[in-house]
Every structure is written in structure tokens, then in C-alpha cells.
Amino acid sequence: MTRLANKFALITGGTSGIGLATAKRFIEEGAKVAITGTSEEKLAAAKAELGDVLTIRADAGDVAGQAAIAEAIRTEFGRLDTLFVNAGVADFRPLEAWDEAGFDRSFAVNVKGPLFLVQALLPLFANPASIVLNGSINARLGKPNSIVYAATKAALISLARTLSGELIARGIRANVVSPGPVSTPIYGKLGLSDSDLAGMKDYLIGAIPAGRFGEPNEIAEAIVHLASDESRYTVGSELIIDGGMSNI
């Protein structure tokens, strides 16, 4: 398939999980792809796996750094047809354990950085162009310990609508995917013991009618659709991909 032929795409957080799976699918569909990441080692590993891809080291929460990403895209691509905002942090704590630094970091990476990245990329977006934001079903579930993470993802869901309202006249549409539990490295970054992690996964699987975690490629397929001209009438929408977790 070549649904993204002759398109230039940027994927933030493209070194693992959903971001890496999406980069693979974009390349298979004919796109020229750039990915960002915080680790040179992981960027190099992703490039070795993906092949012809532009790698950009960047901190997703650093506002000034977003202009540097845009400049790299301008220099290498000249324009941008698709942006997938995937980089994020998942910090789960009970309410009493939160501090200002942790709160600020979550909102910087998950909300502030994406907003200013879109701003920095505005002169480069083609007409038409597609922005896809990676939300989360946590924004709709009210699960314990997700109070700040869920709030950041709710902000992204809102951002998809407001960006569309502001930018659609320029041919730029924004949408959001909200995955449920997906088999990615994020769970290994929560600081849980092996037994607690296994217990959490068993609990989550019990809450998913499909009876399993999603796979990164299943989310990537939806992002390809939203990035392509197939979805040109889909504007400011949220696509929930959670195995029925929020609906049954």
C-alpha cells in the first residue's frame, strides 16, 4: 500500500512502542519519516531497524527545543504533511504523593511541548495536512492514581478539537487516538516490582472485554488512516481503541 506516498511525516517519541510501530507503517505506506527521542542510543537503534529515517534528539517538554525540531524538518524536508504527537510520560501516583515538580513535568511533556511544537511547525504544514495526537482512555475512566496523567490526556483530546477549529481553514485537521492498555515498554517505567506489575496487568486484562492488551501495530493502523487522505472528512475527532474497556 502507498497511502502516504510523497508525504513527509514527523513522529515524536518514535524509538519504541506505538511511535516505532507507526514509523514502520508510515514508511511501508510510502512516507518519508522523521522521529524524535531523548536517547541517542535509542535513536540509533530505531534508525538501524527502520532504515531511511531522520532522527532528531529532543526533549518533548522543552518549549525552546520545539523550534529546533521544526528547523530540522525545514532543512531536511521543506514541508510537513503529517505530525503524530506520541512522546509522553506516564506518571501514576495517589493524590497525596504528588508534588509541583512532577505535575509540571507531566504537563510540560504531555501538553505544553505538543502545543508549542505545533506552533513551531505551522509555517511548514502543507495544505492539506494532518495532526494526530496520542491520547489515552485514562482521560475517560477516572481510575485511581491517574489523576495528573488523565488530566494531560484530556487536555490533548480538547486540543484536537480546538486546533481543528483554528487551523482547518488552512487545510490542517487534527484528531486524537485514545488507546487502552497496549503492550509497550511504558509499563516497565512505572517503578513497580515484578509481582506488582504482573498483578496490575492481570487486573487490566480482567477489565478489557477483548481479554488482552492491544498491540502497537493495531494503534499504528488507525494512525495511518488518520494521516492519510482516506480520513480527510474526519476533523477534531477521537478514535477510542481499547478492546471495549470503556464501553462495556
Score class of each variant (00 low, 15 high):
Q119V: 07
S193A: 09
A174T: 13
K153M: 04
A129W: 07
A108H: 01
N175M: 06
R161P: 00
S183N: 13
P144I: 06
S193M: 07
V177D: 01
A154I: 02
L159K: 06
S136V: 10
P128M: 14
L163S: 04
P144A: 12
R173A: 10
N134E: 00
I172S: 05
A129H: 05
S146T: 14
S106E: 13
V118E: 02
L190P: 02
V111S: 02
L117Q: 07
V109D: 03
I131H: 14
K112Y: 08
K153D: 00
G188L: 04
S178H: 07
S183Q: 13
A154K: 13
L192W: 04
R105Q: 09
A108S: 10
D194A: 15
L167N: 05
I147G: 15
E166P: 03
L141I: 08
V118P: 03
N145L: 13
R105F: 02
K143Y: 11
L141G: 01
S164Y: 07
L192I: 04
L192A: 01
P185C: 04
F116H: 14
K143E: 11
Q119M: 03
L122T: 14
T152W: 00
I147P: 01
L124T: 07
N127Q: 14
L124E: 03
R105A: 04
V132L: 00
R105H: 09
L133C: 08
A169V: 09
Q119W: 01
S164T: 13
I172R: 11
L124Q: 09
V111G: 02
S136Q: 09
D194S: 12
L133P: 07
P114H: 15
L141E: 07
L190A: 10
G188P: 01
F107T: 04
A150C: 09
P179A: 14
R170M: 03
I168L: 07
V111Q: 00
E166Y: 06
P128L: 13
N110W: 12
S193V: 08
G113H: 10
A160Y: 08
L124Y: 04
G142K: 10
G113M: 08
K189E: 10
L121K: 15
A151I: 12
A160I: 09
A108N: 04
V109R: 10
L159W: 02
S136N: 12
A155R: 15
G171M: 07
F125W: 11
P128S: 15
S178N: 11
L192K: 05
L141A: 06
R170N: 09
E166D: 11
S158I: 00
Y187V: 01
T184F: 02
L133S: 08
Y149N: 05
L117R: 10
S106K: 03
G165M: 14
L167G: 04
A129Y: 08
L190Y: 05
L156I: 11
S158Q: 12
L115W: 15
V176P: 00
A108C: 00
P114I: 01
A174H: 06
G180V: 03
I131F: 11
G191L: 01
G188F: 00
N127S: 15
F116G: 07
G135W: 11
G113A: 06
T152V: 03
K189V: 03
